[in-house]
Write a protein that binds this DNA or RNA. Structure first.
Lengths: 341, 341
DNA sequence: TTGTAAGCGTTATCAC
DNA sequence: GTGATAACGCTTACAA
């Protein structure tokens, strides 16, 4: 193995100077630098990362820890594209990325902190929902933290989240504008912000349109296709079934599509459906799903950007940075502008 | 920050002993060990990984580098589940996982080697297809390497691959057994083993069934839905169109499904289709796709296992370890045992 | 069984 | 500008 001493020797300088030269420090004579660089390339020198990290007290690495609402990060239709954005800017900024074990069942908050604190990484991106005590355990060793796709109200922990409330409003008011007056809400039975914000956005859109809020049109189910299908079925079987439905998640909307088909309802004619997220399969459902697109990749990029800013001490930014959504009209909601195949 | 010296001081021993005790070395008095452990927990000590890695000359980390045939690792329907398996066993074995930048366009083989050699990681998993010079560059600094989903014929580089030839045989002979005598082949126009092995498997099945090989029934297209659809279209438009089709990839099979629909062929009645891989969406196509399931997660697990064995010096295993596939019969191939919704 | 001391490879401090 | 020298935090001979 070739170390910096070898390079220094060959270039006829001290290791200290070699280090300076290789790291582009200003205060080294350019002819000396050239000699050092030549020596390094001739020797095919590459710095030992652990030595460097130890000396610099920087890992030049960040970790991604996955939240509880995700089974496997890579296979989650939503989060995996967020992760793509994270990887992109992490590498662009010269950091490397460490994937940590998902918080297991028997695990304790301190486990992760022990794994990641103490110099293993410079900062942590928490993707998805994690309990507050875990978050604080992570924070305690002084790790910069950025939350992705959720936030901890009132905690001041920086976060990057979609504006789910606005998204819900967008979807609902689109359905309303299409002339529906019985718009159902298929929400997520979860206790984090996403759960209530989507509901509030839905309610706000009703108010804005002067349409009454009907509790019987509202269902909350576990996230997941099956549960959503069941909830939709109960909605369709009720006395005054909706003619349109906003599902807070594309996965749930797909469940709704399935339930509609099983109940002999035609989409969009008998039931107009709009989802949210715009996951990959949404363009390929039958009919293609209208949805509120969430800027997933952008969210990942932004989160990594903010974390690195935090690490490099570039001041503090507003706690919660919402990214906006846009409506993607495909076949499942009927009306004009129909797209899809 | 609390270091091992602090622990040692509190426990009234030397740092050396503290290290021994904490690392479960046998030669330390159990009462001493207890004192050290107590001190460590009281101080909430966690070892600095870089210090440890520097001293041990082990990174306890492996890297995943993605091949050229993948655009984004996390979003690839096939490789992302392979990756899930990799993560699982990597963590189970106490290693951490580093994701490296994808080999870019302007990049040179040495770049990755520089990034990963010299102690950054203990070994590398190459997922997908990468040029031989890149592979050798990686190998040169002495990094253990395991290839996943491809191999370098005659190179002796360990690899974990599905038995694509057997898979192709399986799919083709199933179609043959269903009574089809004009079975088309939709192959991948690539120059790595997957390309020719699938073709050979197809041909072998024809021979085994005593059916002649008809060049006009064979198409090769770039991987990807669009190209596959186009190739299928040309097949369907030909004078003696096939009544059944084996597509070497589910993605390509989906393209075939689309082309069939556009040409007014009903699947499976006018055209029986079997794919390979069993990616997530294959169960949800219309009709659901019959396919040869590749043990993707298992492949990832096995590859990580083998790499770690290599790292820890547990001898050498056979160069290429094929994992087997199984036929999953859904709606797209017709015949008995129809499944799906 | 335990302590001392010498690295591991790098960078930072401070003289020169 | 450049070179000794001392960290960084840990492990491991070797000595006690």
């Amino acid at each position: 193995v070739v170390t910096i001493r070898d390079v220094a020797r060959l270039a006829g300088v001290s290791p200290a100077t070699a280090s300076q030269a290789l790291n582009g420090r200003p205060r080294v004579n350019s002819s000396t630098r050239q000699r050092v660089v030549d020596a390094a390339t001739k020797l095919r020198y590459a710095p030992n990362l652990h030595g460097r990290r130890l000396a610099r007290r920087r890992a030049e690495a960040i970790a991604v820890v996955q939240g509880r609402n995700i089974s496997t990060l890579f296979n989650d239709s939503f989060y995996r594209v967020v992760l793509g954005g994270v990887v992109e800017t992490t590498h662009a900024r010269g950091y490397s990325l460490t994937i940590t074990p998902a918080p297991g069942n028997g695990a304790r908050p301190g486990d992760l902190a022990g794994l990641l604190g103490h110099g293993a990484v410079d900062g942590v991106l928490v993707v998805g929902v994690l309990e507050a005590d875990w978050l604080f355990a992570l924070r305690e060793p002084g790790l910069p933290l950025v939350l992705v796709d959720t936030y901890l109200p009132g905690s001041g922990v920086p976060a990057v989240v979609p504006d789910y409330r606005a998204g819900a409003r967008l979807a609902t008011s689109h359905l309303l504008r299409l002339g529906h007056c019985r718009v159902g809400f298929l929400g997520a039975a979860v206790s984090y912000p996403f759960g209530w914000e989507t509901h509030e956005g839905y309610a706000e859109a009703l108010v804005a349109a002067g349409v009454g809020y009907v509790p019987g049109l509202v269902r909350r189910s576990p996230i997941g296709v099956e549960a959503a299908a069941a909830a939709t079925a109960s909605l369709l079987a009720s006395a005054e079934a909706p003619t349109a439905l906003f599902a807070v998640t594309d996965a749930m909307a797909i469940g709704a599509l399935r339930a509609a088909r099983e109940h002999g309802r035609r989409v969009p004619d008998d039931l107009a459906v709009v989802g949210m997220d715009d996951i990959e399969v949404s363009a390929y459902t039958d009919p293609p799903l209208s949805t509120v697109r969430v800027a997933k990749e952008e969210m990942g990029r932004l989160a990594a950007e903010r974390l690195i800013a935090l690490i490099e001490g570039e001041g503090s930014l507003p706690a919660v940075a919402p990214v906006c959504g846009e409506l993607v009209v495909r076949g499942s909601c009927g009306g004009a502008g129909r797209e899809g195949r």
